[in-house]
């Protein structure tokens, strides 16, 4: 363990953080909408120095065999080497796959996108929604930043039109059929205390983390634990903290 990690752990054991925040404090959150002209919807979200752009693109393709009348949603994440000295070029690694899949589950399980409204011709043609997460600068808590950016981008997406087997990206009339605002909150455990919105330095020192996706009605719709083990009572504490913070973050989406 290096000195910085030990320093963060020592602070954490007293409930303190090296940037002066309290356990439940978020960094300054900045949300910009429609930042990418060619995308159907997009958002740039910053939590302090962590910055993510999410773009939504749409196309027409074949539905999955088991859901012939339902649109298709896909989420990918790219930990671009521009964002951190630790990111490398090459095929997606474990971290980016987990990031994409956790954000995916939060959105998919909340049934936020009304996929049945995206059917064009049953069994043949449906709209496909591609949500791509691009990390611009990595300073921790990427799951929460990406999830918030994805939900914001989807809420501001406009559908292209489909005429005579051609997608017209110039003519966007209708909004993408979305309904809820699922919020993903990651709670980290450092030295036995719980923190939200961890920085990269804090993530290097943390013991474990749990990401919880919470729907508008307060129900949870996705959970992912990472790192070391936890007791049942710790899990409940994490859920309570995540539920509390989700209410605050949901107000930021419009």
């Amino acid at each position: 363990m290096n000195i910085q990690e030990q320093f963060i752990k020592d602070l954490a054991s007293k409930g303190n953080r090296n940037d002066g925040r309290k356990e439940k404090d978020y960094r300054e959150i900045i949300i910009e909408k429609d930042v990418i002209p060619k995308a159907e919807g997009s958002a740039r979200v910053k939590f302090g120095d962590s910055e993510v752009i999410v773009g939504v693109k749409m196309g027409v393709g074949a539905p999955f065999g088991d859901k012939p009348d339902s649109g298709v949603m896909m989420i990918g994440a790219e930990l671009s080497p521009i964002a951190s000295p630790d990111f490398e070029t090459g095929p997606p690694r474990e971290d980016s796959i987990e990031l994409a899949r956790v954000v995916d589950r939060g959105i998919r399980e909340s049934k936020m996108i009304d996929l049945e409204k995206l059917c064009i011709e049953k069994g043949e043609k449906v709209w496909m929604v591609f949500i791509d997460i691009q990390i611009i600068n990595h300073d921790g808590n990427l799951i929460d930043v990406a999830a918030l950016a994805a939900v914001t981008a989807l809420h501001n997406s406009k559908m292209p039109t489909y005429e005579k087997d051609v997608v017209n990206y110039e003519k966007k009339t209708k909004k993408l059929p979305v309904r809820f605002k699922p919020i993903t909150i990651t709670v980290a455990k450092i030295s036995g205390k719980f923190f939200v919105d961890t920085t990269l330095e804090e993530e290097n020192a943390m013991d474990s983390r749990v990401s919880v996706a919470i729907k508008d009605d307060g129900n949870i719709c996705a959970v992912q634990k990472g790192g070391d083990s936890l007791t049942e009572s710790e899990i409940h504490q994490i859920f309570d903290l995540a539920s509390e913070k989700a209410k605050e973050l949901r107000k930021l989406i419009n």
Partner: peptide, 27 residues
Amino acid sequence: YMPRSKQVTLLQMDGDIPVKDFNDVLK
């Protein structure tokens, strides 16, 4: 789960459930 120390080492979930019901599932 590690029964001796009562530690949960894998925790994932997808679906839709009120927070208060999660306890029964975990138990």
